[in-house]
Computed example of a mutant assay.
Amino acid sequence: MPLLRSPQLQCEFWNVGQGVFSSGRIQMGDAPVFHWVYDYGMNSSQQLIQNAIQKYKNK
Rank of each mutant, 00 (worst) to 15 (best):
Y38T: 04
V20I: 11
F13C: 09
K55W: 02
G24N: 04
N43P: 06
M1R: 11
I53R: 04
N58Q: 13
N58E: 15
M42A: 13
H35D: 15
R5H: 13
L48K: 08
F34M: 11
Q10Y: 08
V33K: 10
Q46L: 07
S45V: 08
G24T: 03
K57V: 05
N15T: 02
F13M: 08
P2M: 04
N43S: 10
N58P: 00
H35L: 04
V37E: 15
G19V: 01
S23G: 12
L9Y: 08
Q47V: 01
N15H: 12
E12C: 01
G19Q: 11
G29F: 03
Y56G: 01
G19T: 11
K59V: 01
Q8M: 13
D39N: 14
V37T: 12
K59M: 09
S23C: 12
N58K: 07
Q50V: 00
Y40S: 13
L4W: 10
S45T: 10
V37P: 00
Y40W: 03
Y38D: 07
V37F: 03
N51C: 02
S23H: 09
V37N: 11
G41N: 12
I26A: 07
Y38H: 12
S6N: 10
R25V: 00
Q10L: 07
F34A: 06
W36L: 06
F13H: 04
R5S: 14
I53M: 09
S22G: 09
Y56H: 05
G19Y: 05
K55F: 00
L48D: 12
K57H: 05
